[in-house]
Nucleic acid binder design. Sequence first.
DNA 1: CAGTGGTCTAGACCACCAG
DNA 2: TGGTGGTCTAGACCACTGA
Lengths: 230, 230
Amino acid sequence: MNERSHQAIREAIRERISSGEWAPGALMPGEADLADEYQCARTTVNRALQSLAEDGLIERKRRAGTRVKEIPVKRARFDIPLIRQEVEATGAQYRPHLLLHEIIEAPDAVAARLRLKTSARALHLQTVHLADGAPYAFEDRWVNIDAAPGILDAPLEEMSANEWLLKQVPYSSGDVAFTAAPAGPRESAALDVAEGAALFILDRTTWLEDRHVTTMKLFYRPGHTLHSRV
Amino acid sequence: MNERSHQAIREAIRERISSGEWAPGALMPGEADLADEYQCARTTVNRALQSLAEDGLIERKRRAGTRVKEIPVKRARFDIPLIRQEVEATGAQYRPHLLLHEIIEAPDAVAARLRLKTSARALHLQTVHLADGAPYAFEDRWVNIDAAPGILDAPLEEMSANEWLLKQVPYSSGDVAFTAAPAGPRESAALDVAEGAALFILDRTTWLEDRHVTTMKLFYRPGHTLHSRV
DNA sequence: CAGTGGTCTAGACCACCAG
DNA sequence: TGGTGGTCTAGACCACTGA
């Protein structure tokens, strides 16, 4: 990272913002001026400023110029790991245990998420993810069979459905949501916790272009946290 | 977004990856080749590929070239809003209600987070955030008085401590974590829910360079979810 | 409608590191 | 040690939009 690099310039400008040199809402110098000041090409300043804009620190508009945001957006990034990796990272041995494997009519909520016709059938899976044999998380998943037909022959006792699907449709898009809910009877039994215990939940729907492949809820054992840096 | 723009090229390449043209782990063509193929400058391809690398879809190494990731990282981004904005976005009227305002010796866990000497005193605040008068979230916050002295004179009945601090130290860094926990007596009373109810919690510590300013836990009412797109 | 950011280009040099 | 990505430059044109 050179002294005149876009990264160096970005950090320099970030400093000037946090030090209050430009007040919240204030107009900053234009790219050309900054390029002049830092003795570099405008392209380089542009890159630095775009990066700061992505971080939510400044706002840029053509003609209007660049302004320090009044209220900086706090933007957190999370890497959502494969459960196998998450478990193995703690040094424990991972094993999925399939509790339920059925093909039934999908409930309306599920059908909507997978874009199924009402009363269409889907694959319903329930899995406990074990770390050194102890429950780590409980997964309730629905799979659109048309979108991933091979799933019916997949060896789901060795490889969780998640892993299998990841191999088949690796570069899919998705929706993620986090929430909390009390453990119901299924979660309580699977995770070996009291009914009503507060569980952290990851709720995710995945698709590839217009093929809605799967939707699942992942219930973590009490105490699980998800970290990030802002 | 032109046809030869870096965005267009990024999406084209993303397509080629999801279609399986290059298998997971496979070596992709070099920047020069792609530039040739797309009839654009190498810089443009470089930008497209860097963007895909940021998204966790590919991995790039000098000399070794660019490879499709074996296991794509699912990277979720969340904008953490000001509670006021969050509430007002639902059309409700926002009001913070200060329940507790005391200066006491900070517990060890808090002192550690704020880098205080043991048994140093800190400002302890408890606030209910109200939406149209109904509890929306409960906040338990500790403030390092040395790092934000003016807080003692702040009008915390009109403006939550969060907002006040944001005005004073707007462009700070921080740690964020999400988790779930049962409502204790304080949360239960403040949010008007049963004790033991499953609450979604945002836990955050904020600093500006080496001044550790504040740490807080925000307990949302049951049912709250945090959304994102991957 | 003029000034700002957005972006492309062509060329260049550099840093890194696998072979 | 040579080939790859990383990046800077100078110049150009474009797109948007607020004065």
